[in-house]
Nucleic acid binder design. Structure first.
Lengths: 303, 303
DNA sequence: GACATTCATAGGCAAAGCTCATGAATTGAT
DNA sequence: ATCAATTCATGAGCTTTGCCTATGAATGTC
């Protein structure tokens, strides 16, 4: 057998109280049990720890030395338990995850704010990554999950759609525009538009879908950042071609989104996880928050 | 139940090897036992530590966090055991003890040298103290024992005579002096003598014993330090009146001791310990050395 | 000297801990 | 595709540990 924490607890108790009986009471065991624990520990370590008579329990020099290590171990043990418990209850800990640049800027701030309100002590480590890299990065880093728009299937990954946004025309709330329920891609051709550059995932999806129907998008402006597109739209430079989910209503209160049809395209916002990896409690809490918040926005944004 | 070091050992093993089977082998237990230990720990902490399938055992983030505390505790435990073992084997530690000034200078250097040779890593804290204070200091300080000449009995103290020296005349190895087997106190009166001052313990013992027989000592010189007496003797200034044990043969090779008789007086060198206090292993080792070394000198010194 | 307190020890019982045997899942080879 | 091999989980059964109750021994108190 080996030294046990039980023995150490008895030891520090006796050391502090100078009494086996009192220490036993504190530990909720009988005096005889405590007495045995001390004897075991002494045998274990090969040192006498207390000079005891029926009338006094005097720590030896060895005990004086040992007590520090013992106390440290016990405090470590206690800290470990508490820390794990906190982790389990997602009261502390860390969430590390990946987000594609688009979701990170448009969708997640809301989730982050909500989550932070509920779990103020959890450290959040969000890394925005090019959408293409989501999967490979998720396998390689310590990020627990990824949020972004991905299509297809991947080995060892589970994909869950959190919300999906219809590709929409986003413009200022003019009487004319607000009156529309939707726009066709053809109608769009007549209007000044702002779209993402061809290299971006969103744009690639659009181009692919339209070309399948013999159509094509000829935007007036092409930008890299979603925010730029929205800011330009707010200035009245044109309609932004984006998933409705990408419009943060609070940031751009003057803008509204109207779905594009013929074809109607949707762009999912998905949650990626490595298969067979349970999420940390903190991450689980975050995912739950994300689901809730994003589900609330699932309906295509309208006026 | 509470977290046990056993569980932590299993945990760190599995964490490191990424396999329950391998960890079990290392620990010398069966795979099933290791599997149970992990399950227990998980239940204990309320956290999943590994994502396990039959084919892989992946640590969770909680495990990543826990492993540090676990390893620290185990290393502490190991360190504690080792340190205690060293202490027990007197390979480390400290000896604090008291010595009366006389013994400290004349008798103990030999013991110290011998002890140090055998236990180079043990710290020695020898405090020389007036003989009168030995007992009171021993009760009050953290010194574990005392060595000196004390008479009588004391409460809570055990006294053991390590060696005893006959009170002797110490002089240069002249043909005349070396020829003597002993001297009487009366004969001494005719010769130049060097004795300790009246305030010293040795002198008080002499004066008391002689006056009981109606005799008295009238030394030519009176000194405070034993070494001074011996140095003067070596210079031929007279015979030193001292216990034979107080003559370090190696320091004063020219001097020899001849016992004084009528009356023959002996002066014990005793070991004092507090009753019911076990000595630290280091102290025990020291005492053993002292007993051996001093026993070797027990025979009254002669040419 | 009787009493109270405290530590140690013995006997007995419940629980923990381990091993052995077996089952289920997965991988790699034939 | 089937078979063998590997690995983790689970259940039965046995051994050991651990605790409690009861009692004894020592020591200090009134």
């Amino acid at each position: 057998m080996n030294v046990t924490l039980r023995q150490l607890r008895a030891f520090t108790g006796v050391y502090r109280t100078r009494s086996i009986t009192r220490a036993a009471r504190e530990l909720g065991i009988t005096q005889s049990a405590a007495s045995l624990l001390i004897q075991q520990l002494e045998a274990q370590l090969g040192v006498k720890l207390f000079d005891r008579s029926t009338r006094s329990v005097q720590p030896t020099l060895a005990a004086d030395e040992a007590v520090h290590a013992a106390e440290r171990m016990l405090s470590d043990a206690h800290g470990l338990s508490r820390r794990m418990r906190d982790l389990a209850q997602a009261r502390a800990g860390r969430v590390a995850f990946l987000a594609s640049a688009g979701t990170a800027s448009a969708l997640l701030p809301l989730v982050l704010a909500r989550f932070r309100a509920g779990h103020p002590d959890i450290e959040i480590d969000m890394r925005d990554v090019a959408a293409d890299d989501l999967v490979s990065r998720l396998s390689a880093t310590d990020a627990e999950f990824a949020i972004g728009s991905v299509e297809g299937e991947f080995a060892d990954m589970t994909i869950e759609t959190l919300t999906s946004g219809r590709l929409s025309a986003i413009g200022r709330r003019t009487a004319d525009f607000a009156a529309r329920r939707s726009l066709t891609w053809d109608e769009l051709a007549q209007l000044p538009t702002i779209a993402m550059r061809r290299e971006t995932r969103i744009r690639m999806q659009i181009d692919q879908a339209l070309s399948a129907q013999g159509k094509r998008l000829d935007p007036t402006y092409e930008v890299t950042l979603i925010n730029t597109a929205l800011a330009m739209t707010a200035q009245g430079l044109g309609l932004a071609i984006l998933p409705a989910t990408m419009l943060p209503a609070d940031q751009f209160p003057t803008l509204i989104a109207r779905p594009l049809v013929r074809p109607a395209l949707t762009r999912p916002v998905s949650l990626l996880q490595r298969q067979g990896r349970t999420l940390s409690p903190a991450a689980q809490a975050f995912v739950t928050t994300a689901r809730t918040v994003l589900a609330g926005r699932a309906a295509p944004a309208s006026g």
